[in-house]
């Protein structure tokens, strides 16, 4: 009799326990279960944190357990992509801000108020020719002057070449040192513009300057103003050597070099005349 009662008691206990478990599993909302677990963590926060921040760990664990490894990996990848995009956008914003600042300062220079500068990146350089990242779509045209765009030396903007060919999104620029480029330039003390021709070795030469003019090393060479292209003379090169022309001893053979370091140039600006 006692044995049967004990067996009944065991059975009832077991059934009761299982019922409690099943109720917790299927009937109790997960939020309520979560609150219960959280209450436990909150009540025993002090001893739990002794072991190394259990609340934090359980939080981390919960995240790890509610998503599959694949989802977790995808989420991590998405986060990384967003970070990259954000970093790229920030870099682009910084670059745009820098260019706006540069162009604003450039346009503020006397004589360039009516010009419309088109900033462009140097994509490629082959010998004495540059390929820039702006083309017809941006208003670039053959014959337009191209100036260096250097943040540190905004007041020392110099002509570096002339647009020689234009495509939809890119254009090529002949540098001052290109042997096929003939650029009208002015020298201090000269009233008549002379032609500067590239040598193809990083320098250019100016000929047909009578020896009666005093030319010294370091003298500035200006790209002459041309209606609709350049409203004011802009420095382009400096004299490095001046000696009598071997073919015509009455004339100077003047060697010049660009004032801008063309090898390290990464940003340029194409000068486009604003519509009247």
């Amino acid at each position: 009799m006692t044995k049967r009662r004990a067996s009944q008691s065991k059975g009832m206990l077991f059934t009761g326990g299982m019922l409690v478990g099943l109720i917790f599993l299927f009937l109790v909302p997960r939020d309520a279960s979560g609150r219960l677990q959280l209450a436990y963590a909150r009540v025993f926060r002090w001893p739990l944190t002794l072991g190394g921040g259990v609340v934090r760990v359980s939080h981390t664990t919960s995240q790890a357990r509610t998503v599959s490894p694949k989802e977790h990996a995808e989420a991590l990848q998405a986060v990384q992509q967003l970070r990259n995009q954000s970093a790229n956008l920030q870099a682009q914003l910084q670059e745009a801000t820098r260019q706006i600042e540069l162009l604003t300062r450039l346009k503020a220079r006397p004589g360039l108020e009516r010009m419309q500068p088109i900033p462009a990146k140097v994509i490629m350089r082959v010998q004495d020719e540059l390929t820039i990242g702006q083309g017809l779509e941006s208003g670039v045209a053959v014959g337009q002057y191209v100036l260096s765009l250097t943040e540190a030396r905004i007041d020392e903007q110099s002509v570096i070449g002339v647009v020689s060919a234009v495509y939809a999104k890119v254009a090529t620029v002949k540098l001052l040192t290109d042997p096929t480029l003939r650029l009208p330039v002015g020298l201090a003390g000269l009233s008549v513009p002379k032609l500067m021709v590239g040598r193809g070795d990083g320098t250019a030469r100016i000929t047909l300057v009578p020896r009666e003019h005093t030319i010294r090393a370091g003298d500035a060479v200006y790209a002459e103003k041309r209606p609709g292209i350049l409203d004011v003379p802009v420095i382009a090169a400096e004299v490095v050597q001046c000696r009598p022309d071997t073919k015509d001893p009455l004339m100077w053979d003047i060697s010049v070099r660009p004032v801008c370091d063309l090898a390290t140039l990464s940003d340029v600006v194409v000068m486009k005349a604003s519509a009247p």
Partner: peptide
């Protein structure tokens, strides 16, 4: 289930 659950916000599996 309370302190070391199989799945957070879920009780019952370990009880059973």
């Amino acid at each position: 289930d309370l302190s070391n659950p199989i799945l957070t916000r879920l009780m019952g599996p370990r009880i059973i």
